[in-house]
Simulated assay, not measured.
Amino acid sequence: MNTTSQKVLIVDLMHDSISKMLIDAGFAPDYRPDISPQEVHDIIPEYDGIIVRSKLEVDKELLDKASKLKFVARAGAGIDKVDYPYLTAKGIKLVNAPEGNRDAVGEHVIGMLLSLFHNLNRGNREVKHGKWDREGNRGMELKGKTVGIFGYGFMGRSVARKLQGFECRVITYDKYKSDVDLDWVEKVDLETFFNETEILSIHVPLTSETKFLFDLDYLNQFKKLKLIVNSSRGEVLKLSAVNTLLESGTLLGAALDVLENEKINKLSSEEQAEFDKLANNLQVILSPHVAGWTFESYERINEVLVSKLVKEGLAQVR
């Protein structure tokens, strides 16, 4: 029986290995990282599969044009730009790759925590400017603190694994997972999570349920909260709430890899005001959505995606 390779459109920058991996697996890749969203809409009927990162909204309009589409592959973990219910209704497979960058995220979260606890950013800046302030940069230890991991998927579990050697208490709450698989992690109910978390690490996808879930009212339910780390999606955490708690002294610090609006040169006046407060607070660390973005994860994501596509039996269409 004759077979034809699946034609796959790649619309974002990927590690150079992607085309060879796809060809070796029996696909016919078309690597076009500079393509515009409108051009994708124009040519999508030609393709059996599409690989996306963050450039493109895989919405109803696009899916209705994709008459041959068998799968959408997301080069990363989040699928908030994919209309998953509609895609599923059309019988199109969705593959993502949280396994590819979970270690990067775990390390990044630990790095941010240690930097805040030991004043590494502030101390570095002061010494370079001729200020030698030992007492002002006295640190705190992670040991003995209670770290609450909200969301125990690939990323939350990776953070938990990285925390094993720090002799802190690790608790987790996940509405959709019934158990944990690491001996040093305690699964708790939401009330216990609110009552005992001192360091909050957020690991939830952006959905209608989680959008701005962590607003001021929600954060005020935490009884001992001193530090927030967000490496998931910016729109799950209200920045005005973070600023309010920092200004009141309730929070001692925040580490944010993601923001509500990541186009930081095109903020509204209200967004700019909140951003400026964060940027000028020495107890806040910001990074440009790079927690999962390492040289190693860049290539590993390709490996995960291609292996999943092969496992799903999508390498060829008869």
Rank of each mutant, 00 (worst) to 15 (best):
Lys60Trp: 11
Phe150Cys: 03
Leu142Val: 06
Phe166Pro: 03
Ser269Thr: 05
Leu22Tyr: 08
Glu196Trp: 08
Glu299Asn: 11
Met14Gly: 08
Ile199Phe: 10
Asp103Arg: 12
Asn230Gly: 01
Lys266Tyr: 13
Leu286Asn: 09
Tyr176Met: 03
Ser232Ala: 15
Lys263Val: 03
Gly139Cys: 06
Lys65Pro: 10
Leu200Pro: 03
Phe194Asp: 01
Pro37His: 04
Gly78Phe: 08
Phe275Gly: 01
Gln6Val: 04
Asp215Arg: 07
Lys277Leu: 04
Glu262Cys: 06
Ser5Asp: 10
Asp181Thr: 07
Arg134Asn: 08
Asn101Arg: 01
Tyr176Lys: 02
Gln6Arg: 13
Glu235Asn: 04
Val8Tyr: 01
Lys311Phe: 10
Ser297Trp: 11
Gln283Glu: 05
Thr244Lys: 14
Arg157Cys: 00
Leu282Lys: 15
Phe71Leu: 09
Lys55Glu: 00
Glu186Thr: 13
Gly249Phe: 09
Ser269Arg: 11
Val204Phe: 05
Lys68Pro: 04
Ser19Met: 02
Ile285Ala: 01
Leu142Trp: 05
Val204Ala: 08
Leu206Tyr: 05
Gly76Thr: 00
Asp64Tyr: 00
Asp42Ser: 13
Lys177Ala: 13
Ile285Trp: 02
Asp80Cys: 03
Glu39Tyr: 01
Arg134Trp: 14
Val95Pro: 05
Gly106Tyr: 03
Phe150Val: 06
Asn281Pro: 01
Ala291Gln: 11
Leu227Ser: 12
Ala279Arg: 15
Asp83Asn: 02
Leu9Ser: 02
Lys93Gly: 00
Ala254Asp: 05
Ile79Leu: 08
Ile44Arg: 09
Ala104Gly: 04
Val72Asn: 04
Asn220Gly: 01
Lys211Leu: 03
Lys70Trp: 02
His129Leu: 14
Gly26Pro: 12
Leu206Pro: 00
Asp183Val: 11
Phe222Ala: 02
Asn2Trp: 15
Ala273Leu: 09
Glu107Asp: 11
Ile44His: 11
Met112Ala: 10
Val180Leu: 07
Glu61Arg: 13
Ser201Val: 15
Asp30Asn: 08
Ala273Ser: 14
Gly153Cys: 04
Glu167Phe: 01
Ile171Met: 10
Gly76Leu: 00
Asp103Pro: 04
Leu309Val: 00
Ser307Phe: 12
Lys263Gly: 11
Cys168Trp: 02
Glu39Ala: 15
Met112Lys: 12
Glu196Arg: 09
Gly165Met: 02
Asn96Ala: 06
Leu309Tyr: 03
Ser5Phe: 14
Val159Pro: 11
His118Arg: 15
Ala255His: 02
Glu274Ala: 14
Ser178Tyr: 15
Gly76Pro: 03
Met140Val: 14
Ala97Cys: 07
Glu274Arg: 05
Lys226Ser: 10
Cys168Thr: 05
Met14Thr: 12
Glu271Arg: 02
Leu190Lys: 08
Ile44Met: 14
Ala255Trp: 07
Ser201Gly: 13
Glu270Trp: 03
Ile50Pro: 04
Gly136Arg: 14
Gln283Gly: 05
